[in-house]
């Protein structure tokens, strides 16, 4: 039973993959944007941080689900 719970939690945490890809793309685009328009850096970094925080939520959901699986099924 314990093993199954661990596997389930691990699968749930895989959701972090999407967040990683998303944040990677966002940061890449942001650095392109800064290279193109260095004067807009403030606005870009603000947007980037916000977008990262939103994209990160996916990974957080995975984490919360994993935690719930572990705690509730134990």
């Amino acid at each position: 039973m314990g093993t199954l719970i661990a596997i389930g939690a691990g699968i749930a945490v895989l959701g972090g993959l999407g967040a990683g890809i998303g944040i990677g793309i966002a940061t890449g685009k942001a650095s392109e944007a800064v290279a193109r328009q260095p004067e807009a850096e403030g606005k870009i970094s603000k947007t980037l941080i916000l977008g990262c925080a939103l994209a990160e939520a996916t990974a957080i959901y995975g984490f919360v689900i994993a935690l719930m699986i572990i705690i509730m099924l134990k």
Binding site: E56, A57, I60, Y61, F63, V64, L67
Partner: peptide, 16 residues
């Protein structure tokens, strides 16, 4: 739900 879980998960996650 997403508002709630985002805040909760972030705080909990960073804590863990």
């Amino acid at each position: 739900l997403s508002l709630c879980m985002r805040l909760f998960g972030n705080v909990l996650g960073s804590y863990v």
